[in-house]
Nucleic acid binder design. Structure first.
Lengths: 139, 139
DNA sequence: ACGCTAGTGCAAGTCTCTTGCAAATAACAT
DNA sequence: ATGTTATTTGCAAGAGACTTGCACTAGCGT
């Protein structure tokens, strides 16, 4: 993990603590976005002493600093979190059977945004676009 | 509300009950997708005696029959429900300030689906695409 | 090394949604 | 109409994700 993250935190009056570092390391290593519980389980299994509450509080803090993205996959009913550092804006597809989550490397929505703003007079901020389906193994 | 809905229910071994009808009427009248709690509040204010549990159970049943769509708006952390009858497949935008929800009449994802299936070898089932931003009044 | 303040753990609470069970009622047969 | 039965309902309780209060701990700036 880059030391720049520590500096970034410090600049925002935050500290790079033992637990916060552990959260960042696990998020950085993950190939797919993690829920708070999954993150907690991975930390605990990796012998990091941490409370679930602390996981939530860190995720919230990191989200507010823009270091982590919070997302909701299609109809999952919970939030997942992903490191932003070094990753392009992207979306996901999740298998309805086994739950496997895969990154999609495209986002077709730049043009659409202008259209929506024209149509609704809203100013578009964020969007979420998540797919579900059946992965190769579960078909 | 059309009587065909009653027939549709009956064909599936379900009954058109007092409460179920009330749920459908409120959903049909709503200009935007409702959460279970909002639906419950509207029913109660409209002097329909109903339990929140019954609202949930009806929404689940209607969803399974394909008469109602369940959706999650961007980062809202709860489900919303919408009547399918007579409405095209569409998406939504929600104001980050006042929570106002507006339908979007376009879905740009038909072409994209083929691309995703090619890229991931998944079979694409559903997708959710929801925007958030700032509505005209809140800008 | 000290002190201030952010961060943490524990307990308890909130909110959304689900389940178990006995009583009520819609649909159907007689 | 009346009875039968399976669906539906209400109430109580529970599950799961997430939040809050508070006293204690520990970064990190001096």
């Amino acid at each position: 993990m880059k030391t720049s993250l520590t500096d970034e935190l410090r600049a925002a009056g935050k500290r790079m603590t033992r637990t916060r570092k552990a959260v960042l390391v696990v998020l950085e290593a993950s190939q797919f976005p993690l829920s708070a519980t999954e993150l907690y389980t991975q930390l605990t299994n990796g012998n990091v002493a941490i409370d679930l509450v602390t996981v939530y509080r860190n995720l919230t803090a990191l989200k507010e600093l823009g270091m982590v993205t919070q997302l909701e996959l299609h109809q999952e009913g919970q939030f997942r979190y992903e490191i932003k550092e070094g990753r392009e804006h992207h979306h996901h597809i999740r298998c309805k059977i086994c739950g496997r989550i895969v990154d999609l490397l495209l986002c077709p929505l730049k043009k659409l945004t202008a259209l929506i703003e024209q149509e609704t007079r809203f100013v578009v901020g964020d969007h979420s676009l998540e797919f579900s389906g059946w992965c190769p193994k579960c078909q």
